[in-house]
Write a protein that binds this DNA or RNA. Structure first.
Lengths: 140, 140
DNA sequence: TATTGTTATACTCTATAACTATA
DNA sequence: TATAGTTATAGAGTATAACAATA
């Protein structure tokens, strides 16, 4: 009866992580969505814009301006899909890959610090549980 | 090196929880922030508007319209603080307490279902870890 | 002078509809 | 006819400034 809502716990933990992450990314000129895009491209290169938008749960119309900026700065490229001339394949440039690696290193260092007082076992369990929780049906 | 960002994991888990929670609350005419307010009042009654806003991390100016609606529907009351006539004490009405209990029952049932494939031990550990992670410095 | 609740205003983020070029 | 990318527009959510009453 007196149990705390799981959603509230998760929301608070997420907000703390995001609040700590945002300034690190901003220091490299990246918004949170910029980072999400770079991270996804680092993991799964050579997808179409629409596939990218769906994969990260972002609106396809909003993705456009975001990619415009990243492309202008030389971090991603948009090349026409030879198989379907309507579609455009988004890829990381070497500079984009470097930027992502650096940003991710910052983020991971912050996470390590935040979870410092957790035992390695507790931490491993946490990641495993989270992964399991978020595994089924990525929805859209 | 190939490790997943913790923030991304948390954000995904939170989004899944919130997405499942929102329709349950909407069915009772509640927004997420409505529910957060009711939950806080159920736990810590008789605080001032400003204290409430700070406690739940919500803007004090946005809280006003939200309380207006909840008050109009008879779920909360605003009574002047005898000690400080500028301030107003927000409290749950019996109807508000009943509504919150019903909504929370729905939410908890959903959570139980979502975590059904987690062992009781894993689940207990998850809550403990989350609580520990969100315990220090509530910030604002 | 500072603070609580309030209002008004501006700004950001997000969602929807409509257009083009291809399929 | 439907789809990928784009643009424009409207709406929701959020932040900031200023005001009246009280401290």
């Amino acid at each position: 009866m007196d149990r705390e809502d799981l959603g509230a716990l998760f929301a608070r933990a997420t907000r703390r992580l995001v609040d700590a992450e945002r300034p690190l990314l901003a220091a490299r000129g990246l918004s949170m969505w910029d980072y999400v895009v770079l991270s996804h491209l680092a993991r799964e290169p050579a997808g179409t814009q629409l596939a990218l938008a769906r994969a990260i749960g972002y609106d396809k119309t909003r993705l456009i301006g975001l990619l415009d900026a990243l492309e202008r700065e030389g971090f991603v490229t948009r090349t026409p899909d030879p198989a379907d001339r309507r579609a455009r394949i988004v890829s990381l440039t070497p500079a984009g890959a470097t930027l992502h690696a650096a940003a991710q290193a910052d983020v991971h260092a912050m996470e390590d610090e935040l979870l410092a007082h957790l035992s390695p076992t507790a931490r491993r369990r946490l990641v495993a549980t989270l992964t399991e929780l978020t595994s089924g049906t990525p929805d859209d």
